[in-house]
C-alpha cells in the first residue's frame, strides 16, 4: 500500500514520543536525581537522554584530557611543601606538536649551572590541542591533563597564557580527579614520592619513599603552614576563583586547608578536604557522591 512506509516510520517516532512521556511520568519531580540520571544515561535507556548543561553535567572519565597542569607536592607536606615535580628536562616542550610549551630552565645562582627546576613555565592554552603527549611522555609524572573544561573568557592575552603559578596544582588534586591512574603511577614510581626525591633520600640513607603523608595521618587538625599557604596559595588556585581569592583576605587562618581552599577563604568541612566545583570532597576516601533530591541547587 502506498504510504505504508511513511506510516511505519511515523510509528517509530510515535514510540519515541510515548517512551519519553513514560519516562517523564515515572520520574516525576525526580528529574535531577542521581539514580534517574544514571538510568537515563545508560545503554538501556529508550527515552530522552538530554543533559541539561550547565545545571547538569556529565562526569568525565579519569583519562579525560583538557589542558595540562603541573604537579607540586602538597602545601602541607611535612618535608617538601609545595615543591615542583617538574625537573625542566624539556621533553614535554619538545614533544608538544603545536609547540605551545615554553620553559625557562632554572640555574643555580652560585654555580651558574642548570638545576632541575623550572624557573618559568608557560602554556598557551589557545594553541594547546589537548593531545596529552606532554603528560604521556613526561618521565617524572610532573605534568597531567586537567578535567576542567570551562575555560572560556573574554580575553586571550591575559588569561589564556598560563604561567607556572596558574599551572601548578597540588598532587592531591590529581589524586582526586584520577585516583586509579594516580595509584598506578605511584606503583610505577615505587612509592609516593617523586623519583628524584626518592633517589636523594636513598643517598641520604633514608627510606626511599615515604607513604602518602595524607593517607598516614588523616583528618586530625594540625597547625596550618599559613605562611606557605598564603605565599603560594594564589598560585595553585584555579583562575576562575582568582578574583574571589583577591576579595577574600587570603590570610584567613584556614586550618590545614589545601591551597585552593585557602584561596577561596572558605573553611573545609573536614581538614584536608578539597573543593571541586561547588562541592567539598575528601581526596583520600573513595568518593561517595552526595545524593541530591529534586532540584536542590
Amino acid at each position: 500500500m502506498y504510504g505504508s512506509g511513511i506510516l511505519k516510520g511515523l510509528g517509530v517516532t510515535f514510540r519515541h514520543l510515548i517512551t519519553t512521556f513514560i519516562d517523564d511520568i515515572q520520574w516525576l519531580g525526580r528529574k535531577r536525581d542521581v539514580e534517574v540520571f544514571q538510568q537515563k544515561q545508560s545503554l538501556a535507556n529508550r527515552g530522552l537522554v538530554t543533559v541539561e548543561y550547565p545545571e547538569e553535567k556529565l562526569a568525565v572519565p579519569e583519562r579525560f584530557r583538557f589542558t595540562p597542569f603541573l604537579i607540586t607536592y602538597n602545601q602541607d607536606d611535612p618535608d617538601y611543601p609545595g615543591k615542583d615535580w617538574c625537573t625542566s628536562c624539556g621533553i614535554c616542550a619538545k614533544v608538544c606538536p603545536p609547540q605551545c610549551i615554553w620553559i625557562v630552565r632554572g640555574t643555580d645562582p652560585k654555580t651558574g649551572r642548570p638545576k632541575p627546576e623550572p624557573e618559568q613555565f608557560y602554556i598557551d592554552i589557545d594553541i594547546c590541542m589537548n593531545c596529552g603527549y606532554c603528560a604521556e611522555y613526561c618521565p617524572f609524572d610532573a605534568i597531567k591533563m586537567d578535567h576542567n573544561y570551562e575555560l572560556a573568557s573574554y580575553d586571550r592575552t591575559s588569561t589564556h597564557i598560563h604561567d607556572k603559578a596558574r599551572l601548578s596544582r597540588e598532587i592531591r588534586y590529581w589524586q582526586s580527579i584520577a585516583p586509579t591512574i594516580a595509584a598506578e603511577e605511584e606503583a610505577a614510581r615505587g612509592g609516593y614520592d617523586h623519583t628524584d626525591v626518592q633517589k636523594a633520600r636513598k643517598k641520604a640513607g633514608l627510606e626511599p619513599s615515604r607513604p602518602d603523608p595524607l593517607k598516614v595521618k588523616p583528618a586530625e587538625p594540625e597547625p596550618a603552614p599559613v605562611a606557605v599557604a598564603v605565599a603560594e596559595a594564589p598560585a595553585a588556585a584555579p583562575q576562575a576563583e582568582a578574583p574571589k581569592a583577591e576579595a577574600a583576605p587570603a590570610a584567613s587562618a584556614a586550618p590545614a586547608a589545601p591551597s585552593s581552599a585557602a584561596a577561596d577563604g572558605e573553611t573545609p568541612p573536614h581538614p584536608g578536604w578539597i573543593k571541586r566545583g561547588k562541592r567539598w570532597i575528601d581526596p583520600n576516601a573513595k568518593v561517595e557522591p552526595v545524593r541530591r533530591k529534586g532540584k536542590s541547587e
Binding site: 579525560f64 580527579i177 562541592r279
Partner: peptide, 29 residues
C-alpha cells in the same frame, strides 16, 4: 580528537571500568 594510535600499537589499554571519580551529581553514571 582521540589521538589514540601509536607507531607500533595503541596508547593505552582499555580501562578496566568506564568510570569517573569527578564529584559531579552523576558520579556513577
Amino acid at each position: 580528537m582521540c589521538n589514540y594510535m601509536r607507531i607500533g600499537g595503541v596508547a593505552k589499554d582499555l580501562m578496566a571500568r568506564i568510570r569517573s571519580e569527578a564529584a559531579l551529581i552523576n558520579d556513577k553514571v
